[in-house]
């Protein structure tokens, strides 16, 4: 590192571009010239996944399943059309499977190959989901992985690990927390976390007086 002293200003003549940024800009400009890409469409995609698609959508699915037994049955039987009933679906969720947690069975989802994930209900995957330790350990030591996420299950609860692929992407239907009888779907959805739908977490503990939560 250079040590600047005295009171002379350091003058910037140009802009900084990192090697990876330059590679990405290069591909984007070449592919746009060749007619493969439309920059406006790229911007729209980024905005969609930054602002609209995320785990709040999966939380709506879970909350509906908690209050509507017929929907729950449809969701567990054939998830993709059931989820589409809520207007949720599309790329990365062409074939989804929902697996239900019970006192006897906890489900955990991983993509051992790369990072396949049900985008329409959960958005894009978190960094740890794509990293080698989770990909490997979810399969060989799911209970240890859960402990790292702060989840301790009864010894009698079996853990089933589901391997998402490009063709089939899994989502967990967590157990409805006790003490939520009479909650609205919206209040229930607020208890559903991203990790609870991957299986590395549980729904939130009850908030204080949900009826009095500020709007």
């Amino acid at each position: 590192m250079n040590q600047h002293h005295g009171d002379h200003d350091h003058v910037h003549h140009g802009s900084e571009i990192s090697p990876v940024e330059a590679r990405v800009r290069a591909l984007e400009s070449l592919l746009t010239e060749k007619g493969y890409l439309d920059p406006a469409a790229l911007d729209a995609l980024v905005e969609l996944y930054e602002t609209e698609v995320g785990p709040h959508l999966g939380a709506r699915v879970v909350a509906r399943a908690w209050v509507d037994p017929a929907f729950r049955t449809r969701l567990l039987t054939e998830a993709t059309p059931a989820i589409a009933e809520l207007g949720i679906g599309g790329r990365g969720g062409e074939h989804m499977v929902v697996v239900e947690n019970t006192p006897e069975m906890h489900n955990l989802v991983v993509c051992t190959l790369c990072s396949c994930y049900p985008w329409p209900v959960l958005g894009l995957p978190p960094v740890w989901y794509k990293a080698p330790p989770y990909r490997a350990r979810a399969v060989i030591d799911p209970r240890g992985v859960l402990a790292e996420f702060g989840v301790t299950l009864p010894e009698t609860t079996r853990i089933t690990v589901w391997d998402s692929t490009a063709e089939t992407r899994y989502m967990v239907l967590p157990m409805r927390p006790a003490g939520t009888e009479g909650f609205s779907e919206e209040a229930l959805a607020a208890l559903v976390t991203r990790d609870s739908m991957i299986g590395t977490g549980l729904p939130r503990a009850l908030p204080v007086e949900p009826a009095e939560m500020p709007v």
């Binding site: 990876v20 940024e21 990405v24 592919l31 890409l37 790229l42 911007d43 980024v46 790329r91 894009l124």
Partner: peptide, 15 residues
């Protein structure tokens, strides 16, 4: 931002 651009390029090219 570059991560977002890569993601969007891959999705567009797949489509």
């Amino acid at each position: 931002p570059w991560e977002a651009q890569v993601f969007a390029m891959v999705v567009s090219l797949r489509e």
